[in-house]
Design a protein around this nucleic acid. Sequence first.
RNA 1: GCGCCCGUAGCUCAGUGGAUAGAGCAAUGGAUUUCUAAUCCAUCGGUCGGAGGUUCGAUCCCUCCCGGGCGCGCCA
Length: 588
Amino acid sequence: MPTFRQLLTQKLRDAIGKADITVPDGITIEVVIASDERFGDYQSNAAMMVAKAARMNPRQLADAIVTAFDGSCFCEMPTIAGPGFLNFRLTPETLAASVSSQLADGMLGVPSVADPKRIVIDFSAPNVAKPMHVGHIRSTFIGDALARIARYVGHQVITDNHVGDWGTQFGMILHGWKTRLDQAALRKDAIHELVRVYRDVNAATKADEAVLETCKAELVKLQAGDEENLKIWRECVQLTLDQLHGIYARLGVTFDHYLGESFYNDSLTPLVKDLLEKNIAVISDGAVCVFSDGSRKPEQDPFLINRGGEWVPAPCLVRKSDGGFLYSTTDLATIDHRVRQFTADEIWYVVGAPQQLHFRQVFEVSQRRGHATRMEHIAFGSILGPDGKMFKTRSGESVGLLEVLEEAVERAAVVVAERDLPDNDKSKIAEVIGIGAVKYAELSQHRMTDYKFSWDKMLSLQGNTAPYLINAYVRIRSIFRKLDSGGGCPHTPSPSSVAITEDAERKLALKLSQFGEIVHDVLSDFRPNLLAQYLFELADTFHGFYEACPVLRSEGLTRHSRLVLCELTSRVLQTGLGLLGIQTTERM
RNA sequence: GCGCCCGUAGCUCAGUGGAUAGAGCAAUGGAUUUCUAAUCCAUCGGUCGGAGGUUCGAUCCCUCCCGGGCGCGCCA
C-alpha cells in the first residue's frame, strides 16, 4: 500500500514529464507533508527548485505543472501559493477509502521494503560484574526500537548483545574474588557484591603498587588459560547474565545472540597475523598498528590527528607491545564473524558518540580487508550528571538502571492506586506505565542531544509522555468495552464504507494515513524520536476528534465511520508504541 | 592545538533550505448531567549564541568568533 506522499510524488513527476519540463541534475522532485494545514495536506517546492536551476519563472512553471497534473479524483486540483509552492489537498472520499484500506491492511499502511537486508544490530552491551546504569538506557532502547522497526518493514534483523565479558578489569575482580569476597552477599545480589569487590581492590591498587602487580598477574593467568581463574571468570559471567536476563525480560528487550568479547578470543591472533601479512598493519614501537594510507584529506583521515599545526599519525592499535589485544582487535574479529557467519548486508552499532573515531578507524580497516558490508555507527549523546558532565562510569558515579525502573513503576503505582481498577490488574498496569514512561522519555528525544539526568523528566506522567499516548489508546478501548457490554461478541468494525465529514474526522484520517511514511523516515536516519513525535501528534489529533465527535451517541454511517477511525487509531497507537518497545494496557 | 557533537520560549526539548519557528513543563484563566480529567480549550512567553556571506528565500548551507561537552598509541 503506497503512501500518499509516494502517490503524490509520482503524480507530480508524471505531470512534470507531461509538461515537457526537464529536471536539472541534483534536484529531486519531492512532496512532503504540508508545513501548515491551512495550505493543504501536502506541499512541494519542486517548481521553485527547478525554476532556480533553469533560471525560469517559478510561478509560470508551477502553472504548467498544475495544468498537466492528473489527480484523477484522488486529490483536488493543486493550488499555487506564494513564490511557487504547490499545495495538494486530498478529497474526503480518498481519505475515507484510505482509512478503510489501512484498517484492512495487516501492516496498517506501512509499505514493506523492496529489498530486504540482513542487518546485524549491536546494542546495549553491558559489562560483566557491573550494573546497568542510566548510560545503558540510550543504547538499549534505541537499539531495540530500531530492531523492531527494521523487522516490521521486512528486514531480516539479527540482534547481538556484545557483552563486555573480557578485559583488564578482570585482574582486579579475580584478585578481589580470591581475597575479599563475601559469599552471602554474592548470593543475595551478585553484581552488587562484584562491584563492591572491584571498587575495594581498585582503591587498594592506588594505595599499594604491589596489589596492582598482583592483579596484573591474575589477568595474565586468566588470559593464559589458568583453570582456576577461568572457573571464577565463568561464574562471574554467568551471575551477571542471570541478572541481566531479568532486567531485559522486564524491559521486553530480546537478543538473538549474546556473543561477548570473549567469544572472539581465539580469532584475535590469526586476525593480527592476517593484517600483518596483507601489509594493512605494521609494527611500530613494538605494537601492531594500522596507519593512514594517505587516501584522504588529513581533516577526514581517521588515522591522523593535528598536534600543534602538524598532522601526525593516530594509528589504530590492534596489538599492544606486550602482546595483548585491544578493543579494536575484538571489534574487527566481530565484524569478520558477522560478515562471514551471519552474512550480514549491514551492521549497525548503537554506541555513544564519544566512540566515533574508534568506529571510523575500525570500519576503514575492515574495508581495507575487503568487507563491503555497510557499517553504521548510530551515535547518541551522553546522559550527564547534575554538574553537566558525563557520568563517570568507571568509578560508578551514576544512577542504576534498575533504580530508575523501580522508581518509575512506583510513581505510576501511586496514580494507579487512586483509580477505580480491578486490584489484580493494578501492579501490571503500573509496570506498563512506568517502564513505558522511561522508554518514551528516551525515545522521544533526538539521539544526538546530550541531556542531564532528571528523575522528574524521566518519570513524568503528564504531557508528552507514554501515559498520554497509552491514555488515548485506553479511551478507545473503553468505547469498545461499552459497545460490547450490550451483549454478543466483541465488536470490531468492518472496514467497509466509511464517510469523512467533520473536520476532526478528516484531520484524524489524514494523520493516520501518515503512519506508513513516518516509520520509513525513522530508518532513513535512525531516529525513533520521529515516530514518538508522530504518535504524540496522533494522540493529540485523536483527542480533538474525541472532544468534537461523539461515537456511541452518533448513528448510522457516522457512528460506523467513527468506530472505524477509533479502531484504526487504537491499532496504530498500539503498533507504533510496540515499535518503540512500549506496551499498552486496556485500562489505566 | 586539531577533529566530532551541541547552543532555539523561564525550564526541558522538537523542527535543519521554504510560507506567520512549534510542543511539553511552569504561570494565568476556563471546561466534567456527556465514550476514563494521566484529558481538553485559551492566554502569556523568542534578536533560533554573535557577526559576516551564498540564495528569490537561512534556525538550517559556508566562513570567522563566543560558550559548553567529548575524543585524540599501547583502557574499553
